[in-house]
């Protein structure tokens, strides 16, 4: 039997050790498991304040079997820049310096340091697991919370913002590699991290990771909710490389059918499982649909740009 990606995942071993302290059904740790399989042991995770600063467990033990540096909320990409430059100055190559943080740490408070590191094209990965709010502090809205979602600071689901399109923003920096991923598609995630590993310079990967307690759905539904995000067109899977003044953008296989809006499931399918949308208004649903259309319109522009000779 030829070796498949599944064999590769099994052979990679586990760097996320059982007995960590993430909530049952946590999407973020599923993603981290596969990210670490792709990265391997020569990895330094730089972790800003986030759920992952807590689910790695308590001193003097830790549940992740790679090097970890816990850092202040807004500082992760800058700390990683320092580590990467120091290793290069010392002549060490092939060490993956990886920021692993949530949407709060990388899309809100730490966005300036992420953008600065991207603009300088630091040889680091910034991997954001997006659970669409400040989950570790108790579900407060972030710049990545979708319109209409109830959080403890939008208790009845008031529309505040529009969910910051961070991956597109990173792509506009002209960095070598940007991708989105989703925890329902772990092999796609694994291959994207492996691809990023082969590229020197700044890499950004934005992973959709549902949060059962924060989004108020049953622990067992994490994968179903994540998959529906793709099937409704809410979350678009793509990867892009910037080479010689051009962006090479492609939709990833699971998202390709949904370029055609008629193939997408209605957004209600995605919303219905989640308590955070249980009292969503028609106005918010309209706003969400508008947001989805807007995301796809950007993707189409990048596809067109990539198709031009």
């Amino acid at each position: 039997m030829p070796k498949t990606i599944l064999d590769e995942l099994i052979e990679a071993g586990e760097y996320l050790l059982p007995g960590h302290t993430a909530c049952p059904g946590c999407g973020s740790v599923i993603a981290l498991r596969h990210v670490l399989k792709a990265l391997g042991k020569d990895t330094i995770l730089v972790i800003p304040a986030s759920c992952s600063s807590v689910y790695q467990a308590i001193y003097p033990k830790v549940s992740i079997n790679v090097m970890i540096y816990n850092v202040a909320f807004a500082s992760a990409a800058a700390v990683a820049s320092g580590i990467s430059q120091a290793l290069e100055r010392k002549g060490f190559e092939d060490v993956n310096v990886v920021v692993w943080g949530g949407d709060g740490g990388l899309i809100d408070i730490g966005a300036a340091s992420v953008s600065g590191a991207a603009e300088r094209n630091e040889n680091i990965f910034v991997i954001c697991y997006d659970n669409e709010a400040y989950m570790n502090t108790g579900i407060q809205r972030s710049g990545s919370t979708p319109p209409g979602a109830r959080t403890t600071t939008t208790p009845i689901g008031k529309i505040v913002g529009f969910k910051k399109p961070m991956a597109y923003i990173m792509l506009m920096h002209g960095v070598p590699y940007v991708a989105t991923a989703n925890v329902a598609y772990p092999t796609d995630l694994y291959e994207k991290v492996k691809k990023a590993k082969s590229i020197k310079g700044f890499k950004f990967i934005h992973i959709f990771t549902p949060c059962p307690p924060g989004w108020r759905f049953d622990d067992s539904k994490t994968i179903e909710v994540a998959r529906l995000a793709v099937e409704t067109g809410y979350w678009i899977l793509w990867q892009a490389e910037y080479r010689h003044g051009r962006i090479h953008f492609e939709l990833s296989p699971p998202s390709r059918p949904y370029l055609d809006a008629s193939k997408r499931k209605p957004i209600e399918e995605f919303l219905k499982f989640q308590g955070r949308f249980s009292k969503i208004t028609e106005e918010s649903v309209k706003k969400l649909r508008e947001w989805i259309e807007y995301q796809w319109s950007i993707a189409k522009r990048f596809l067109d740009m990539s198709a031009q000779k």
């Binding site: 850092v71 500082s75 820049s81 320092g82 100055r89 340091s113 600065g116 300088r120």
Partner: peptide, 27 residues
């Protein structure tokens, strides 16, 4: 023979030298 990181803020300046020092260099 040094790396000069022209960071985007003082917060990041200190963050970067912390990272560099932790990785074993004089910063």
């Amino acid at each position: 023979n040094a790396k000069f990181i022209a960071v985007e803020s003082e917060h990041s300046a200190m963050a970067a030298v912390i990272g560099a020092s932790a990785a074993g260099v004089r910063a």
